[in-house]
Design a binder for these strands. Structure first.
Length: 213
DNA sequence: TTCTAGATCGCCT
DNA sequence: GGCGATCTAGAAA
């Protein structure tokens, strides 16, 4: 337990391989899994640390709750808001408090189990939002502060789909922070129906936003 | 389909 | 004591 701290080397390297907003885009299409449940990431948001007014680490705040943000790349950071949980991955080196919020996932396996976790809510409502996907995957605070692939939450960069197009948009739930409210740090697979707040007329139900091959 | 309001809990100040 | 990186239901056009 004393050695092998941190995420597998490839994942650690991935989460440090460029600016956080760029990593957030490359995360689209990666495969997320928790035990037998899995899905493809279709929507992310980047949080840019000390200078980002919407981040927990804005202005260098370093509290018990936000401590995972300051740790090594590849850490899973689960945060509770009201009655919901939100799933984040830590990016960049230690003491660089940046992270990526997972907002939407397209289910791949274990759909029956996810539907049960969501109390029977099915279809596109299954995982099209950060609180919803955590409920569907059964993610909660026991998964917080654990490196990816070292606990229940795993990530595969090799088994992934390729987005046909990526849309950048302002983040959700970030009011009254001027430039940070409008900053295009939210990325999603254009036309994918599992993106949160996607309107039906904007969905592409044929390709679901992926490259055909 | 789109908008509005209320629920509800741990952490921060 | 107050607030938040949300979700859901209900109403109206």
């Amino acid at each position: 337990m004393t050695e092998n701290q941190g995420a597998p080397q490839a994942l650690t390297a991935f989460f440090k391989s460029g600016p956080t907003d760029e990593i957030a885009q490359r995360l689209l299409g990666a495969k997320l899994s928790v035990g037998p449940l899995s899905g493809y990431i279709v929507e992310t948001e980047a949080y840019l640390g000390e200078r980002d007014q919407a981040a927990h680490s804005y202005g260098g705040r370093h509290t018990k709750r936000s401590d995972p943000l300051y740790q090594e790349a590849g850490l899973v950071y689960v945060y509770q808001i009201r009655t919901q949980f939100l799933l984040n991955f830590i990016a960049q080196a230690k003491n660089v408090p940046q992270g990526i919020l997972i907002r939407g996932v397209q289910p791949a396996t274990g759909v029956t189990q996810m539907t049960a976790n969501r109390h029977g809510k099915g279809g596109y409502d299954l995982t099209n939002g950060p609180g919803k996907l955590c409920q569907a995957f059964g993610i909660d605070l026991k998964d917080n502060n654990v490196f990816v692939d070292r606990g229940r939450v795993c990530l595969s960069l090799t088994e992934h789909k390729k987005p046909a197009a990526i849309t950048a948009a302002p983040r959700i739930g970030v009011p009254n922070h001027d430039e940070w409210t409008l900053a295009p740090l939210r990325f999603y697979v254009t036309g994918n129906p599992y993106v949160s707040q996607m309107r039906k007329r904007d969905m592409n139900l044929t390709t679901e936003g992926w490259q055909s091959k």
